[in-house]
Computed example of a mutant assay.
Amino acid sequence: MHCAQAMWHRLVPQKMLGWPTRGETAALHMSFVHSRFYHALGVLLHYGSPLVLLVDPDPKSVGQILTSTRPGILETHPNTYVLWEDLADAPGAPLASVRCFGSTFDAIHPRTVRRLLGASKRGSPWLTQLYGQSETGPVSAWWYTRRSARKVNSRLVGIGLPGFTRVRVVDQDGNRAKPGTHGHIEARTYGRCLTYLGGEQLYKRQLDGDWWRMGDMGYLNRWGALHLIDREVDQIDSVASSLEIEDVLMSRLEELREVIVVPNGAGEAVPVVCTRNDEPLAPDRWKRATEDLPALAGPMQWRFEDLPRTSTWKIKKLEIARMLASGAVPAVRYGG
Rank of each mutant, 00 (worst) to 15 (best):
G199F: 07
T290V: 15
G174T: 07
G92I: 10
Y38V: 14
P125D: 10
D171F: 00
E291D: 11
Q5K: 14
K314R: 13
T136V: 11
L253T: 06
E135K: 08
W223C: 04
F105K: 03
D210I: 07
M217V: 11
A26C: 05
A325F: 05
L293C: 11
S97V: 02
G198K: 12
M16W: 10
P179K: 08
Y81T: 03
P308Q: 05
P263V: 05
D89S: 11
S61A: 14
K60G: 14
V262S: 09
I185E: 01
P91L: 04
I73Y: 10
L95Y: 01
I245T: 06
D86V: 10
Y81S: 01
T145Y: 11
Y131E: 10
S238V: 15
R99Y: 01
T67R: 15
Q172K: 12
T25A: 11
L130S: 02
G23S: 04
D237M: 07
A119Q: 06
H29A: 09
P263G: 06
R146E: 10
R22L: 05
Y196I: 08
G23Q: 04
W84K: 01
A4G: 00
R115Q: 12
M323A: 13
A93P: 00
L41V: 07
S326G: 13
T275E: 02
L281V: 03
